[in-house]
């Protein structure tokens, strides 16, 4: 759950303990927003108090720089493809918690960035105003809600990519002749596109709420990065989290199963003949 109480300055120690992203450089198109302070700041074995202060200051500065890269990718920016799909995401994926963003921390970073921009502070440290915090928090809660699943099942055909998520609807990207076919309804719109080898799925809702998922697979095809961004007209800034997933090879079961209409799921140890 998101900690709604507000920022805690000492949490930076936790950030410094977070290991660097193991495979960040293996992705064909490195995400500039992945350059985070833990990777550039050495962790001293016995830090002295004055050094810790300097370290904290450097980290805060870096935080501000990192937040600059939080530019939401809009569907208008995406390109369509010709021929085969630019990437194959199919498979079972399980969340890599060690590499993935901590959503509370992302929120604190955002509060810091907002405070820096608006020159508001708390205890001498830049901090978003109450108004900005109350407007950003709903987006953060939404992102937390929709990224809760720790497993993704992705199936891909010549024309479609289906991302199944537990407790949520499946993201579905359908392409005809390389052009995405939007799924429109009275309640929102789902449209996909490609940004080089990144699959971009955009969910647009009434009132300007928008959720963007970007999927990218590592060069060795073992890791999947999903960047989820929520934006709204009422929020002072977008809210983005990056989650990593490891590919899981599922062993074939002893039973072969198919879905039928009148008999539901039918399984057999041998060949299934209806």
């Amino acid at each position: 759950m998101i900690d709604c109480a507000g920022p805690e300055p000492f949490v930076l120690i936790t950030i410094l303990d977070t290991p660097a992203l193991p495979n960040a450089l293996e992705f064909p198109v490195p995400d500039t927003t992945l350059v985070r302070y833990p990777t550039i700041l050495p962790i001293p074995s016995h830090p002295r108090p004055r050094f810790i202060t300097a370290l904290l200051l450097a980290a805060w500065l870096c935080l501000a720089g990192c937040a600059h890269h939080e530019k939401p990718l809009l569907i208008e920016d995406t390109k369509y493809f010709e021929g085969d799909m630019p990437a194959d995401f199919s498979g079972y994926w399980q969340r890599d918690y060690a590499s993935s963003d901590n959503i509370n921390q992302v929120l604190r970073n955002a509060y810091y960035e907002l405070g820096r921009k608006s020159r508001t502070s708390q205890g001498g440290i830049p901090m978003a105003s109450d108004r900005d915090r109350s407007r950003l928090l709903p987006l953060a809660r939404l992102v937390e809600l929709i990224t809760r699943t720790d497993e993704l099942t992705i199936s891909q055909t010549e024309h479609e990519i289906l991302v199944e998520r537990r407790d949520d609807f499946s993201l579905m990207c359908a392409f005809f002749d390389g052009v995405a076919k939007p799924a429109d309804s009275a309640f929102g719109r789902e449209v996909c596109g490609w940004n080089e080898d990144r699959l971009v799925s955009v969910n647009e809702f009434p009132d300007g709420l928008r959720v963007i998922h970007q999927f990218q697979i590592s060069a060795d095809r073992k890791q999947l990065r999903v960047i989820t961004t929520a934006t709204s007209k009422t929020s002072p800034m977008p809210f983005t989290v990056r989650l990593y997933y490891w590919r899981v090879e599922k062993r074939p079961g002893k039973f072969a199963c198919i879905e039928t209409l009148s008999m539901k799921r039918v399984c057999s140890t041998g060949e299934l003949v209806l």
């Binding site: 709903p138 939404l142 609807f169 499946s170 309804s185 929102g188 809702f205 709420l209 007209k233 009422t234």
Partner: peptide, 26 residues
């Protein structure tokens, strides 16, 4: 507008709609 209740409601309305459509396909 912009409150958690409002955002959650909009998301859920869309979610149920998509789940219904996907169930139909299934």
């Amino acid at each position: 507008r912009g409150s958690w209740e409002s955002i959650k409601h909009r998301y859920d309305a869309y979610k149920y709609d998509r789940i219904t459509a996907q169930e139909r396909d299934r």
